[in-house]
């Protein structure tokens, strides 16, 4: 299990990286954390001719918050979220979710943006980004464009990024103090990818849900935002009865995939459970 040969570049600046991308396009892959890419290369499932290692590009290593929300540079590692990167519910949610991502050593290397670019449907960050209206900033030698997360994932391991584009930043809108969140994931072992998971965020005022975000992951070829159920939640109380209703409708609305780890029927059961538990946590 040794990787096929490749050429290697480690540019020191973003502009150098983008120039290399422009030059090699489909022949090259970006190496950030490498925690998904390198296993695929060791199995020779991925055989890029050229790797562009962005780990020396200091200008991509940042995470900061401003009144527009949270900005996460391409080199921000999962472990950066062990501590709260922003005050309030968003930072707390990031910390809680980060602890479900693989294991401690993987989190030291793997990056948030890399998870999105890799587009594994069972990825926690893909679910979080999908549910919380993230925007992806893609940069290339041609310029820069913002991609709404709903337009970003094309399917399993497939995104809207062009061959010469680098996922440079992920932006999340701010989440005020009125928001509460819940996350539930079921996996076989600690650190495994989710067989089913859900993320919920509710803004509740005087017992009434004013805004809601609800997404599920590990179910199909990408994370799914359950917008209709969000609409059902808004305007009422996040009661046990309402939560059960939403879980039932989530169960009915998804058409999960089956694989060796879980049949469609089982995944559907997990989705309902995950939605119920994530909402219960958010409503608590």
């Amino acid at each position: 299990m040794k990787p096929a040969a490749f050429d290697y570049f480690r540019p020191a600046s973003l502009s150098d990286a983008l120039a290399l991308l422009a030059k090699y396009k489909d022949d090259c892959k970006i190496l950030a954390g490498g925690q998904s890419l390198v296993p695929a290369m060791n199995f020779r499932l991925a055989r890029p001719a050229i790797l562009i290692d962005i780990n020396d590009i200091a200008e991509l290593d940042y995470v900061h918050a401003d009144d527009r929300g949270l900005h996460i540079g391409a080199l921000t590692r999962h472990a950066a979220f062990h501590r709260r990167v922003v005050d309030g519910p968003l930072g707390a949610l990031f910390s809680a979710v980060a602890r479900h991502i693989a294991h401690y050593p993987i989190r030291q290397r793997g990056t948030f943006a890399g998870s999105l670019a890799h587009a594994d449907p069972a990825s926690e960050w893909c679910l979080l980004a999908t549910t919380l209206d993230a925007t992806v900033v893609a940069k290339s030698a041609r310029g820069e464009r913002a991609i709404a997360i709903g337009d970003f994932f094309n399917g399993t391991f497939s995104t809207d990024l062009e061959p010469d584009e680098l996922l440079a930043e992920v932006h999340l809108p701010p989440m005020g103090q009125g928001w509460r969140t819940g996350f539930y994931e079921f996996s076989r072992r600690a650190g495994d990818f989710a067989l089913g998971m859900a993320l919920a965020a509710l803004r509740i005022e005087a017992g009434v849900v004013r805004e809601a975000r609800l997404g599920v992951g590990g179910v199909s070829d990408r994370a799914i935002r359950l917008r209709k159920l969000e609409e059902r939640l808004v305007g009422g109380a996040a009661s046990q009865e309402m939560i059960d209703t939403i879980a039932r409708e989530a169960w009915a609305s998804v058409s999960p995939i089956g694989d060796i780890h879980a049949t469609p029927e089982y995944r559907r059961d997990l989705v309902a459970t995950a939605v119920k538990r994530a909402l219960t946590e958010a409503a608590a």
Binding site: M1, Y8, R10, L31, G34, Q35, V38, P39, N42, F43, L51, D53, N55, A79, H103, Y104, P105, I106, Q108, R109
Partner: peptide
């Protein structure tokens, strides 16, 4: 050699990492 077992864990700049998931040049 796919980052699960952890037998190859070493410290790089004091952080434990899988040395099978990093290239030597890095």
């Amino acid at each position: 050699e796919h980052g699960v077992c952890g037998a190859c864990t070493v410290l790089v700049d004091d952080k434990p990492v899988r040395s099978c998931l990093m290239f030597g040049v890095q």
